[in-house]
Amino acid sequence: MHKFANPAQFLRLARPLTPVLFWSGLLLALGACAWGLTMTPAERLQGETVKIIFVHVPSAWLGMGGWVGIAIASIIQLVWRHPLAGISARAIAVPGAVFAALCLATGSIWGRPAWGTWWVWDGRLTSMLILFFMYLGYIALASASSEKGNVSRVAAVFGIVGAINIPIINRSVVWWESQHQKASITLGGSSIDGAYLWPLLVSFLGFGLLYGAIVLMRMRTALADIRIEARMRRLAED
């Protein structure tokens, strides 16, 4: 960890890594979606609309995973005061919010033909909506922080405490009588036919790599902004 405590060392890795993550992610995501849209069979009951799964589920997982990243970065900031912790948490937040919003939007679009409604206040949908609002709150708190590096203590604590929502979203379909169906993919196995499961996993990988590339870009921007601020201050003093 301390190897990358020095921003210069982090950048030395981040700069070449960004295009690698971006292009591999883009290729896999586009490829998986094309595969899913054109080469998978129509589903028994839903017909073609099942293919929304290839964007809906990765968005859900990445929206949730993003907040886990924020929680981890917040702990690292509070406990070890790692200089890149706050920067990484901020970088994760906006894309995480986008994925959460996409999960809600694509889910709603899917729900209309499949279930018969755009929305229900069941456990899964409500907790995912709450996650999206939590992201907005975190983004606002983080940008209100006085430093450009680490976030305010309030923001970091919020990032950690809010993580309780992630297992809630996951378990919601088990704990409560829900409109959203129960888990199709579990540690024990999957009730999704292989024809859909493989493009889904590749799609998740592709979008995940893209998420990584975006986070790196946003971290690089933040580090550059810090350098700019420091230089501007020095130039003003001269």
């Binding site: 069979p41 589903e43 028994r44 409109q179 169906q181 199709s184 036919d193 024809a195």
Partner: peptide
């Protein structure tokens, strides 16, 4: 408002018993 179980099954396998369908689904695809 229809409720949905957690299975995703291709149309070709729809006539078979759900369980057998899932097993065959692996080899078919």
């Amino acid at each position: 408002l229809a409720k949905h179980d957690e299975n995703y099954i291709p149309r070709e396998l729809a006539d078979m018993d759900m369980h057998a369908a899932q097993k065959t689904g692996e080899s078919l695809s």
